[in-house]
Structure formats: C-alpha cells, structure tokens
Amino acid sequence: MATGNSQQRIDIRKVETEALEWFLLHSERELGDSEQFAFDTWMSQLHNRASYQRLQQIDRSLAAIAATEEGARLRQRSGFAGVWATLNNYFGIAPISGFAFACTLMLAVGVAYLAPWHGEPAPRSYASELAQVRTVILEDGSQVTLGGDSAIETDFSGERRHVKLLRGQAFFAVAKDASRPFLVNAQGTEIRVVGTRFDVNAGSRLNPEVKVTVEEGIVDVARSPVQPEDTAPKVRLTAGQQVRVDARQLSRISTVENTEVASWRQGKFSYRDAPLSEVVADANRYRKDRIIIGTRELEKLRVTTAFTADQADTLVAMLEQSLPVRVFKEPDGRVVIWPGTVE
C-alpha cells in the first residue's frame, strides 16, 4: 500500500512539472509543429489538462492582483514575504504546501508581477477576465478598454509612455502629449502615436497576426527592429485604415467602416474574408469551453460572418451551418471543428 501511495505522489509531481514546462514554453514563444502536436497529445489527458488550466488561472489571477491597489502597495513596501502572504490568501497555497511542486515554482516565477521595485517607477499590469470588457485610466489620463481575457503592462517614464499588449485585444484613447510619444508593443509590432484612438488585436497562436485599426488620428506601425541599428519598414495609418503584421511583413492598408472599429466594445464581432483561426481565437476569449480547430488547413479557411458576445457559445453551430466543417463536443466541454461537407 505504501508503494502505491508513493507512486501516485510521483505521478502527480510529474504531471505538474510537465504542465509548468509547457506553460513556460508557451509564454516564451510560439510552438513548432512537432511541439504543438506533442502538446495537444499531452493535453488530451484529463489530469494533464487540469494541471495546465490551473496554471493559466493562477497567471490570470496574478495579473489581476498586480493591477489592484493592493498589488501597488505590495510592490512599494512589503517585499517577498508580503507577496507570498497575499498569494496564499488568494490561492490557499504556501511555498511548502498545496500544489506543492510545479505550482510553487509557477508562483516563484509569477511573483515578478508583485515584486517590489526600487528607483524607477514600477510597471503596472492590468487584466480582464474571460468574457469581461474592462476600461482602465492610465496615469497620463489615457483610457484603455480591454477585451475579454486580455492583459497589458504599462511603463511610463519622464520621456516616454510605453504599453505592452501581453495578450488579447485593447482599444486605446491616448491623451495628447507631444513631448512624450505613446508606444504600444504587441508580439513584435510597434505602434507609435502622440494622441489618437486606435484598436490593437495581438493575435494568437493559431493566428499570429497583429491587427491595428485606427478610429481617429494618425498611427505609425512597424515591426520591432531585431537590432537597435535596424531600420524596419513602417506604415502610417489614418482614421478608417487597418494593417496586419506578421513575422515577415506588413500587409497592404485596408479600409474599415468607422462603426466597425473596435465594435467588440459594444459586444459585436464582424469578419470579412478572415481566417477561421482569427474568428475562433476571438470567440475563445468570450466563452468558457474552448473551440479547437482540428487541422492546419481549416485554420486558413476564409470566413465572412458576424456574431455578438452573447452568441459566442452558439457560434460553432452557426459555423457548421455555413462552412464545410463538422463540430464535435467532447465530454470536458471543448468543441473541436473538423473538415466536413455542407449538406
């Protein structure tokens, strides 16, 4: 009996260790094809998926804590002891108990959200929950509206205003200040403005394109240079214009109806000849059970559709009716889209 219990503990530790490794790898970069296949296979096991999803929830919660007044106080005065105490209050986890092995390491990494800073002003983090639209006012008076399951980090100094879109989508209404340019970085794309209104979608693993759309003013968009001396191509957008940026290039400038710029703020989503991967990635930020695209070919399937936030749960049925796909719901609630035929 003792041998059986020991083996069970070792198995749990192995699962938690693997979950942490996959989580950190996802945070660092996009997975290659073979890695993605290995990850999907690993995630098909219920106990693996449960461990991974808990790390995701901890990460979202850490970002949310950091964005509160309590998070700011922790950064200013309490040090790591106070951080650990706060994490224990939120999660019921101490460094030597609970989700002991992988989770403790995860929190040790995540404590950077709340670690105290000295000298330079501490970066601030803001996050939204799944299906939540949240508006925050930055220290310069600029306003940022976060879409579902989105996060930003701000770093304002005397000479610049810098925001990193960590994930998801955000609409910026920037306070004018000619002496302090406002920079937004999203997945290697740099957006530079002085005062304007624009939307940025950071893309996803399935659709690694950054999409920038301008409602008002002028916005410069470029790939971030690999080396400081590099000169990257850039485009200048004005009201009603949009550009997509991937790892290789900037797309041609397209036009967008003013009423469609960041219409997600009113719970409306519309797509014209967009890849299915983009539609699914957006919908997944507004529904509890994730939609999975079964094949690489389907990710590129072009879609013209529209739905509202409260229709995110029924989107897959709408897609099945209009596209050559079949939809399967798994026991854990996930929905998988496979190639099929329209009757």
Rank of each mutant, 00 (worst) to 15 (best):
M1R: 15
N5Q: 13
S6N: 07
S6Y: 11
Q8T: 11
D11Q: 11
R13V: 01
E16P: 04
E18T: 07
E18F: 01
L20K: 04
L20T: 00
L24A: 11
L25N: 09
E30V: 07
D33H: 15
E35M: 02
Q36A: 13
Q36H: 10
D40S: 12
T41P: 02
H47F: 02
N48V: 11
A50T: 12
Q56P: 03
Q56R: 09
D59P: 07
S61D: 07
L62Q: 08
I65Y: 01
E69G: 10
G71P: 13
R73K: 03
R73D: 08
L74V: 05
R77D: 04
S78P: 13
G79R: 03
W84T: 06
A85S: 05
A85C: 06
N89W: 14
Y90V: 13
Y90M: 08
I96P: 11
S97N: 15
S97H: 13
S97F: 12
F101E: 14
M106K: 01
M106R: 03
L107C: 14
V111I: 15
V111S: 13
A112C: 08
A115V: 07
H118W: 13
G119E: 09
E120C: 15
A122G: 02
R124W: 10
E129V: 03
Q132E: 10
L138Y: 05
L138H: 01
E139R: 02
G141H: 00
V144G: 14
D149I: 06
F156W: 09
G158T: 04
E159H: 10
R160P: 04
R160L: 04
K164H: 14
L166Q: 04
R167F: 04
Q169K: 00
V174F: 02
V174M: 01
A175Y: 08
A175V: 05
D177F: 02
N185G: 09
Q187E: 07
G188D: 00
T189M: 06
G195P: 04
G195T: 04
R197C: 05
R197D: 01
F198N: 08
F198S: 08
S204N: 08
N207H: 09
P208H: 07
T213A: 00
E215F: 12
G217E: 01
I218M: 11
V226W: 12
Q227G: 05
P228M: 12
R236I: 15
G240E: 12
Q242H: 10
V245S: 04
V245D: 11
V245Q: 07
R252W: 14
I253A: 04
E257S: 08
T259L: 12
R265C: 09
Q266A: 10
F269Y: 12
S277G: 06
A283L: 06
N284G: 03
K288T: 12
G294K: 08
T295G: 13
R296Q: 10
E299K: 11
L301T: 02
T304R: 08
T305K: 14
D313L: 05
D313E: 14
L315C: 10
V316D: 12
V316R: 04
P324A: 05
R326W: 06
V327R: 09
D332G: 06
W338L: 11
W338H: 13
